[in-house]
Structures are given as structure tokens and as C-alpha cells.
Lab assay of single mutants.
Amino acid sequence: SLEEAIRRAEEALRKGQTFEYAGIRVTTQEALEKFRKWAEKQK
């Protein structure tokens, strides 16, 4: 689910890792916010 993907992205960010979902790379807090906004639109 998208909620699960967001949780995994947050977890990866805390560990300093890269999270990738549907071709979207989350490597920074800013990218995480963009990913969250994108995920909201997918619902």
C-alpha cells in the first residue's frame, strides 16, 4: 500500500538509505515530502 511505502521511505531516510518506489527515489526529507504529496494524489 502507499501508506506502507511512505513508512518504508521514512525508515530508509532515518537510516540514511535510499528508498525507491514506482521509479521515484527518496533520498532527502524534501524528496520524502514530494513523495507524500504524490502518494496523496494516487488515492
Rank of each mutant, 00 (worst) to 15 (best):
Q42E: 08
A39F: 07
Q42A: 08
A31L: 08
E3V: 10
R7Q: 12
T18Y: 15
A5N: 04
K41F: 11
A22T: 03
Q42G: 06
W38T: 01
V26R: 00
F35C: 02
R8D: 11
Q42W: 09
R7S: 11
K34A: 15
E4Q: 10
Q42D: 05
E33F: 06
I6S: 02
F19N: 01
A9S: 03
T27M: 09
A31R: 04
T28S: 13
G23F: 04
K37C: 07
A12M: 08
F35Y: 03
R7P: 03
E10Y: 07
F19K: 00
E20P: 00
T28L: 05
A5M: 14
V26I: 15
A9W: 04
L2R: 03
K41R: 13
E40D: 10
E4A: 11
E3F: 08
I6R: 02
K43H: 11
Q29A: 12
K15F: 10
E10K: 05
E33T: 07
K41P: 03
L32I: 04
T27H: 10
E4R: 09
E11I: 09
A5F: 12
R25T: 13
T28Q: 03
T18Q: 10
L13D: 00
Y21T: 02
A39V: 15
T18W: 13
I24R: 05
S1V: 13
E40Q: 08
L2H: 05
A22Y: 08
K41I: 12
R36H: 04
Y21D: 02
S1K: 12
G16V: 02
G16I: 02
R25M: 14
F19M: 02
I24A: 03
K15A: 14
Q29W: 15
G23L: 02
R7V: 09
E33S: 07
E10I: 09
K41E: 15
F35H: 00
T18A: 15
R36F: 06
G16N: 07
E33K: 07
W38F: 04
K37D: 11
E20G: 03
A39I: 13
K15H: 12
K41D: 14
A31Y: 04
A12L: 06
I24D: 01
A22N: 14
K41V: 11
T27I: 06
R8W: 09
K34P: 01
K43R: 09
A22V: 05
E20H: 06
A31W: 06
L32Y: 06
T27L: 06
Q17M: 13
R14W: 07
I24M: 11
K41H: 12
R36D: 00
R8H: 10
R14T: 09
T28I: 03
A39T: 05
K15Q: 13
E4V: 09
F35V: 02
I24E: 03
K41Y: 12
I24W: 15
I24N: 04
A9K: 00
R7H: 11
E10D: 05
Q29R: 11
F35R: 00
T27Q: 10
K15Y: 09
E40S: 08
R14A: 15
A9H: 01
K41G: 14
E40I: 07
G16F: 05
G16A: 03
R8Q: 14
I6D: 01
K15D: 11
R14Q: 12
Q29S: 09
W38H: 02
K15W: 09
F35K: 00
L2Q: 02
R8I: 07
R25I: 15
I6Y: 07
V26S: 01
A39C: 12
G23V: 01
Y21F: 11
I6Q: 03
E20S: 06
A12D: 03
E11G: 04
E3L: 11
A39Y: 07
A39L: 11
G23I: 02
F35T: 00
K43Y: 13
K43F: 15
F19Q: 00
A31T: 13
E40W: 08
K15E: 11
A9L: 04
Q17F: 12
E30A: 13
F35W: 05
I24P: 00
G23Y: 04
L13C: 03
T18F: 15
T28H: 05
W38Q: 02
E30W: 07
L13G: 01
A9E: 00
K34L: 14
A39M: 08
K15M: 14
E40N: 07
T18L: 12
S1Y: 14
E10W: 06
L2C: 08
L32V: 03
T18K: 07
Y21S: 02
T28V: 03
A12K: 04
A5R: 03
R14K: 13
F19I: 02
I24G: 03
S1Q: 13
A31I: 06
F35I: 03
A22L: 12
Q42H: 11
Q29P: 13
E20I: 12
Y21P: 00
E30S: 10
E30G: 07
A5H: 06
K37A: 15
L32E: 00
T27E: 15
E20Q: 07
R14N: 10
W38S: 01
E33D: 13
K37R: 14
R8L: 14
T28Y: 02
E40L: 09
L32M: 06
G23M: 03
V26K: 00
Q42C: 14
F19L: 02
Q42Y: 10
E33I: 10
I6E: 02
L32S: 00
E4H: 09
T28P: 02
Q29H: 12
L2N: 02
R7D: 06
W38V: 01
K34T: 10
A5G: 03
I6L: 12
E4S: 10
G16T: 02
A12H: 05
K15S: 12
A39P: 00
A12W: 05
K15T: 13
A5C: 14
K34Y: 15
I24K: 04
K15L: 15
A9R: 00
T18G: 09
E3W: 11
R7E: 09
I24H: 13
L2T: 04
T27S: 14
E10F: 06
R7L: 12
Q29L: 15
G23E: 04
R25Y: 12
I6C: 08
E33P: 00
